[in-house]
């Protein structure tokens, strides 16, 4: 092992605390916004699935409803995604 390598190995890894903070900032913000989502969301999602099912064959997992209410935005967003299975 070269001398340089030896020193490198001993040098402390700087900055993993920074990464910890960045990751926490994201997850904490995410958990706050999902905690703020309205309690009727699961019911809404079930009803949307029921309505679409009248016309096509989808499963409950094909619909996702997400509510976001970020402090930096002027508006709240209700995002509804419907994945349509390809006709087999």
């Amino acid at each position: 092992m070269g001398l340089l390598q030896y020193f490198r190995k001993e040098a402390p890894k700087k900055g993993s605390a920074k990464l910890a903070k960045d990751r926490l900032q994201i997850i904490v913000a995410h958990e706050h916004s999902s905690a703020a989502s309205p309690s009727y969301l699961p019911e809404l999602q079930r009803e949307i699935v029921a309505v679409i099912r009248k016309y096509m064959d989808i499963s409950a997992q094909d619909v996702t409803c997400e509510f976001s209410d970020k402090a930096e935005d002027d508006i709240s967003v209700l995002e509804v995604n419907v994945a349509l299975p390809k006709n087999k």
Binding site: K13, K14, G15, A17, K18, A20, K21, V28
Partner: peptide
């Protein structure tokens, strides 16, 4: 360890 930036600091935790 905080000084070596291996551990979250008081300020970091306070911010979070």
């Amino acid at each position: 360890r905080v000084q070596r930036e291996e551990m979250l600091s008081i300020e970091d935790i306070d911010d979070l």
